[in-house]
Simulated scan of single mutants.
Amino acid sequence: MENLSPKQCLQCGNPLVGRADKKFCDAYCRNSYNNQHKAAEEQYIMMVNSQIRRNRRILKDLCPEGKSTVRKEVLDRLGYDYRYFSSIFKSQFGPYYLVYDYGFSPMTDDRGIKKAIIIQRQDYMDEPSFNIWKKS
């Protein structure tokens, strides 16, 4: 015998109207439910990707002309997280930590002030000169 009690939304518990296989009352409930039930590693990936996007936005905002220099305190105040970047470009002056198409190289000036040289990615940076298996 078929269960005649109305089905309820898995997220909010409201009665469902419509298709027999419906599980959620609307897209908001479906998205909320799925976000809450994602595996821990998926949530970690989402957090890392979110921080990488934030880092890129910060670098882009600070580098409207393709190259700029800012104090480390500015990056810190804007919430830049130095642990997250997408690649490393080794230049003759030191490494650039790239976040997609923007990057920075840390430096300390002759007065001991920590700064970041921010650059926009250039085509020559795509050359396959970086090899993690090659010892420096």
Rank of each mutant, 00 (worst) to 15 (best):
Q43E: 10
Y100G: 04
V70S: 11
G79T: 04
Y100W: 08
R121M: 12
L10Y: 10
K7G: 06
G18I: 03
L16V: 03
G18M: 04
K134R: 11
K38D: 14
N55C: 03
E127S: 04
S50C: 15
G18H: 05
F89R: 00
N14E: 09
Y80D: 03
A40L: 08
D26W: 08
N35G: 01
N55H: 08
S32K: 06
P64N: 01
K7Q: 12
Y28G: 14
I88F: 00
H37F: 05
K115H: 13
G79V: 06
G79I: 08
Y33S: 01
P6M: 07
D21C: 06
E65W: 08
C12Y: 07
G18K: 01
E42S: 09
F85I: 01
T69I: 15
D76Q: 13
L4K: 15
M1V: 12
P95Q: 05
V99C: 13
K115F: 12
I45P: 05
N131G: 04
D123M: 05
E2H: 14
G103I: 03
W133V: 05
Q51I: 13
Y84E: 01
L98Y: 03
M107L: 14
F93I: 01
Y97R: 00
F85T: 00
Q51D: 02
Q36W: 05
Y97S: 00
S5L: 12
C63Q: 10
G66Y: 11
D123W: 00
R56M: 10
S105R: 12
Y44A: 13
I113T: 08
V74E: 15
K134W: 15
F104D: 01
I117G: 14
G103S: 00
D109G: 11
Q92Y: 11
L78I: 06
Y28W: 05
C29G: 12
S136H: 13
L59F: 09
I113N: 10
N55R: 04
Y44F: 14
A40H: 15
I88R: 01
D76G: 07
R83Q: 15
K23S: 13
G66W: 09
K115Y: 10
Y28I: 12
E42K: 15
V70C: 15
C12P: 06
S91P: 00
R83E: 08
E41A: 14
P6V: 08
S91R: 03
D123K: 10
T108G: 11
Y97H: 08
Y100C: 02
Q36F: 12
D109E: 09
Y96C: 01
C63I: 08
L62G: 10
N3W: 07
D109W: 14
Y102A: 06
E127H: 14
Q120K: 05
S105N: 09
M46A: 15
R71C: 03
R57V: 06
D76R: 13
G103M: 00
I58W: 13
D110L: 14
C25N: 01
K115G: 09
Y100F: 06
F93K: 03
N34L: 04
L78M: 12
R53I: 02
C29M: 10
I52T: 03
M47D: 07
K115A: 07
N14K: 15
Q36M: 15
